[in-house]
């Protein structure tokens, strides 16, 4: 379909006898947030690895705007338009917030083999990064090293770096992890606006946030998707209630 930005077709990946991802197909449409939920060990991280390119699938394909990207490396997928954030903040610790975002802008442009012009005199790179930091609310912290930012600020910097890639779609791996109630609320508002930039495939443990944000939800259990639908449909689905919602997390 023309509106499918990201499409997974029959993705499978086994580790020995364990089928971590088992024939998973899903789509991410323009303008939507598609949340992926599932109990611990359901295979969310493996699926994330298959989409981002960190892992190769045994079977199946990954498509981005109608282009088969299954064989591309992590870096090539990022240049093709996948903007991801990590479950555990993954930043360049010795670089300031500004330089982290500048590096993302540099990565998107694909011009890393330049040896002469100093990056700190590259006004386009600097002003672009400042604008993005301002948008996520980190403007005043631009010159602080990533290693000494607070946990919440590090989560925001993760998003800022994904944003700097101007991706065709976002892969956000538990962006709310470890945020307090206030931080989560702010991020929910922000993500709601972000989906206008590009659709979001969201892996998240915070059920309140998921049900507030997601246009569609897919439930992953033992590597398989057992249901996909709107928040209301997922809440009402008896299979989902039985294997997931009734067991450890409650609605």
């Amino acid at each position: 379909m023309a509106d499918d930005i990201l499409a997974l077709h029959g993705l499978s990946r086994a580790f020995g006898a364990l089928k971590a991802t088992d024939d998973v197909s899903l789509t991410l449409r323009r303008g939507e947030i598609h949340a992926l939920i599932g109990p611990n060990g359901a295979g969310k991280s493996t699926l994330m690895g298959l989409v981002s390119g960190k892992l190769a699938p045994d079977r199946g394909t990954v498509w981005l705007e109608g282009r088969d990207i299954t064989r591309l490396s992590v870096a090539a997928r990022a240049r093709a338009g996948l903007g991801r954030s990590f479950q555990v903040s993954s930043l360049i610790p010795e670089y300031s917030a500004l330089r982290n975002v500048m590096l993302a802008l540099q990565g998107r442009a694909g011009h890393s083999y330049r040896f002469l012009r100093p990056v700190m005199r590259d006004q386009a790179l600097i002003s672009g990064a400042r604008a993005i930091l301002a948008r996520v609310g980190l403007g005043p912290r631009a010159s602080v090293e990533a290693a000494v930012l607070s946990h919440g600020e590090r989560r925001l910097l993760e998003i800022a770096m994904a944003l700097a890639l101007s991706p065709k779609c976002f892969l956000l791996d538990e962006p709310m992890a470890g945020l307090g109630a206030e931080g989560t609320k702010q991020l929910v508002t922000f993500l709601h606006g972000l989906k206008q930039d590009a659709p979001i495939l969201l892996i998240e443990h915070d059920m309140d946030a998921v049900f507030q944000l997601a246009d569609r939800i897919s439930v992953l259990v033992y590597g398989r998707i057992i249901a996909t639908g709107s928040a209301a449909e997922i809440r009402a689905n008896p299979q989902v209630r039985a294997v997931y919602l009734g067991t450890e997390d409650s609605l």
Partner: peptide, 13 residues
């Protein structure tokens, strides 16, 4: 400092 992050930004380590 962080090769995985660089790759996710499109920079091949």
């Amino acid at each position: 400092q962080n090769p995985d992050r660089a790759a996710a930004l499109g920079i091949s380590p």
